[in-house]
Amino acid sequence: MSTPPRILVFIPAYRCEAQLRRVIGQFDQQAQGWIDTVMVVDNRSPDRTLDAAIERGREQFTHCRFIAWRNDDNYGLGGSHKAALRYAIEQGYDHLVVLHGDDQASIADLIPQLEQGAHLRTDCLLGARFMPGSRLQGYSLLRTVGNVVYNLLFSLVAARRIYDLGSGLNMYRLAPLREFYYRAFPDDLTFNYIMLLGSYHARQKVRFFPISWREEDQVSNVRLFRQAFKVLSLLGRYCVGRGAFLRRELRARPIAAYTGQIVVDQAPGGARP
């Protein structure tokens, strides 16, 4: 019998104290049964985000390991991805799940994919808000239309059907990511877009699956129109440069290493390893 793959769930968190408690509450015994470790990565939040994660995580995670991590600097969402990816690779995990800490996506939507073994047949298993079977709650018509249009533009350039450029629930097989070719990808919110183009360029197996998505009390840090023009500019530069573009320095501030500190490391059952 083959050994089950080791899965680390990475929860990026910034100024989402109330929402993060609910995200951690999503991990019932069934979900924890599929996971080796849940790792909350706080990107230097000025509020009690990390404290909330520790308080809720200590009582919730009884069947998997729980790590609370604080970045050494504010690296942005993309930078937090890089910190978590490097940690997961160095610690010998096989897959990394990304679940945003703002409680818009649900880990429950991934469980059927794990039960079907979809993660064993793909390199990137990406949650999609805009494909048949997805469910949107509280999402504006303007943003829905904008996302669908951009999905179509990216699909044309990538010559692949793209259903979402970056939702709050994704899963990556770590073997293709060991070379850290994404080091110079943007550290901001556009990281997911470039990561997707990079995955297609590297001929990785990408599969989308429908998810539920809700907007309630979340606070967005995105300036909608500025972000839209920035994404369009990146797509145009990729269309012209392809591989050469992906090898460029795309960060506003190059960072040598995406380091952080483990604040809490709790083994299953509440004991510290």
Rank of each mutant, 00 (worst) to 15 (best):
G117M: 05
G57Y: 06
L50R: 07
A118W: 04
D73H: 12
A108P: 00
T62N: 13
D73Q: 14
F66W: 02
G79H: 08
G133F: 04
C64E: 07
L85K: 06
A68D: 06
T122A: 14
I89M: 06
I107L: 08
D73G: 03
A84F: 04
L96T: 00
L125S: 05
G57K: 06
G101R: 04
T62L: 14
A118K: 10
G101D: 05
R70S: 13
G92H: 06
G57P: 04
D123E: 10
E115H: 01
E115D: 12
A105S: 15
H63W: 10
Y93K: 04
D73Y: 09
T49S: 13
R143V: 12
D102T: 03
D109F: 03
S140E: 10
G127K: 04
P112Q: 05
R48G: 10
R143D: 15
L141I: 12
R86Y: 06
T62V: 12
L141S: 14
D47A: 01
E59F: 06
L142R: 15
R56P: 00
G92E: 05
P132D: 08
G146D: 11
G57S: 05
K82V: 06
A83C: 11
S80F: 04
F61C: 09
R135G: 00
R135N: 10
E55S: 11
D51L: 09
G76A: 01
Q91L: 01
S106N: 14
I67R: 14
G101C: 04
R86A: 15
Q113E: 14
L126V: 02
M131C: 10
R143Y: 11
I107E: 01
R121G: 00
S134H: 04
L50G: 07
R129Y: 00
T49R: 05
A84T: 09
Y87W: 15
D73S: 14
D51W: 02
S140W: 09
I67N: 03
C64Q: 06
M131S: 08
E55C: 01
H119W: 10
C124A: 15
A105R: 02
R135L: 13
M131A: 09
R86D: 15
I89V: 11
D51C: 05
V145W: 13
G101I: 07
R58T: 11
M131Q: 12
F66Y: 09
D47W: 02
P132W: 08
Q116E: 14
N74K: 12
W69S: 05
E59Y: 03
N147W: 03
G76D: 02
R129P: 00
Y93A: 02
D47P: 01
V148M: 14
C64M: 07
S134M: 03
Q91S: 12
Q104N: 11
E90K: 12
Y93I: 02
F130E: 00
E55I: 09
F130M: 02
V98F: 10
D123H: 14
Y93F: 15
L120C: 09
Y139K: 09
